[in-house]
Amino acid sequence: MESDRTMEHYHMNLNLKVWRQPNSQTPGAFKLYRVENISSEMSFLEMFDVLNEQLIRDGEDPITFDHDCREGICGSCSMYINGKPHGPWAANTTCQLHMRAFHDGDTIVVEPWRANSFPVIKDLMVDRSAFDRIIQAGGYISVNTGNAVDGNSLPVPKDHADQAFAAAMCIGCGACVAACKNSSAMLFLSAKVSHLSLLPQGDPERSSRVVNMVAQMDKEGFGACTNTGACEATCPKEISIANIARLNKEYLLATLTAE
């Protein structure tokens, strides 16, 4: 999609087909909107700000959507745009998607993340607190507070540090769940397990962590991974599916050796 990233400035009129849903109990439906004179230099969320101002002026309820940093690092934004989480660009979040990805006259379909474990709160905003509970089940290390230890007292092989850092890039946005045909959270979970199990600081809780986090993931109602690779292809932080294989290995070893 790099070819779409033309730097030429232009304006466009767009048709938007946006999912509107008052709350998790009430069924939702698509509603059509038209926005005009949109700059190609706007971000996708800025275009939504324009639409919301238009709706407020017209006395309508503005569209609810998640956002926070708008810098691609917090993992809050969560729109499923034209059949892909975070829109057409690779390795990109919705807030970093710019309108130069679209052309005058385009119709853009915007949906919320769809998974039973991510119930819609309103419109395009979903409840992703299931991820928080998975983290609470084991995505931490227990250390005594006090003075910072000397960095050299805990040797970490360079390749382990690199792999742990790559896994720690996960921002927990939930695009992996949204993209997966099984609504599986295993790319997210595997990133968290890999990040900590590769480092000496995470070693003491290594076995209990993976067992508890998998149990919590199942309790939250996410599906099982079938290695289709859709999660990896859509992940804004390019988390590798190899982490899922590592998660499987960690789980197998933990369950074989746990008392």
């Binding site: 087909k17 892909k84 998974a115 039973n116 993209a179 099984n182 609504s183 599906g223 289709t228 292809a233």
Partner: peptide, 24 residues
């Protein structure tokens, strides 16, 4: 069957580019 039950409301536009048809 279990995996299919995890998404009660499907997408209007399916994400098919990220995986092979035979994997799905």
């Amino acid at each position: 069957l279990d995996n299919r039950s995890k998404r009660s409301v499907g997408y209007a536009v399916d994400y098919s580019k990220g995986s092979k048809w035979y994997s799905r």
